Computed example of a mutant assay.
Amino acid sequence: MKLYKIVTIQHINASVEDCWDFFSSPKNLQTITLDNMSFEIQDFDDKRMYQGQIITYTLKPLFGIKVSWVTEITACKENEYFVDIQQFGPYKLWHHKHFFERTQDGGTKMTDVVHYALPFGILGRIANQLVVKNKLKSIFDYRYNKIEELFNSKNA
């Protein structure tokens, strides 16, 4: 199994508590996801992130094909980090860590680390080279820009 890694670091002009308030709410996932992915939460218990939480949603990540995704929050420490893993979905493995650190200027350094693997062996590797890694880059670029707009723009 070939394992891939994505790391994103972003400085946010908001307190760790304000960042946590936003990012620990599954409802805000749709806000930071590309519109053309048709992201829709199907079920969650309407609570802030906590260890053991299950979130189910549908989205259209590639070619307009609708897929179901089930995420479990496997670790969570308020105002510091949470980890989500795919229990069911398009990846062979999806492990996403979110870290929040106070900065000296009163803002927050947010670090995302994603490890993922695709099914289908060599075909999955080819798909990653041709399509998947570029799609993930566009998803994380959109997310980065949306967070800039929400937290770091003069209008925020």
Rank of each mutant, 00 (worst) to 15 (best):
S15G: 14
S15I: 05
E17F: 06
D18K: 15
D18H: 12
C19D: 06
C19H: 06
F22N: 01
F23I: 02
F23K: 00
F23A: 00
P26I: 08
K27P: 00
K27N: 09
N28A: 11
T31V: 11
T31C: 04
I32D: 00
D35H: 06
M37H: 12
F39I: 03
F39C: 11
E40N: 13
I41L: 15
I41M: 02
Q42Y: 10
D43F: 12
D43P: 09
F44K: 01
D46W: 08
D46G: 13
R48Y: 12
Y50Q: 12
G52D: 14
Q53P: 09
Q53S: 02
I54D: 05
I55C: 04
T56F: 03
Y57W: 07
L62V: 04
F63Y: 13
G64A: 10
K66A: 08
V67H: 04
V67R: 11
W69T: 05
V70Y: 04
T71F: 03
T71K: 01
T71P: 01
K77N: 10
N79M: 08
N79H: 13
N79A: 02
N79S: 08
Y81M: 12
V83L: 08
I85V: 15
Q86H: 01
Q86P: 06
Q87W: 02
F88H: 14
P90S: 07
P90V: 07
P90C: 00
W94L: 13
H95I: 02
H96K: 03
H98C: 07
H98Q: 08
F99H: 05
E101T: 15
E101S: 12
Q104I: 09
Q104P: 03
G107E: 07
T108Q: 05
T108Y: 03
D112N: 09
V114M: 11
V114N: 03
H115S: 12
Y116Q: 04
Y116F: 12
L118G: 03
P119G: 04
F120I: 14
G121C: 13
I122W: 14
L123H: 06
L123I: 07
G124F: 04
R125P: 07
Q129S: 14
Q129G: 04
V131Q: 01
V132P: 07
K133Y: 06
N134Y: 10
I139S: 10
F140I: 09
Y142T: 02
I147G: 00
E149R: 10
E149D: 13
E149W: 04
F151S: 10
N152K: 07
S153N: 04
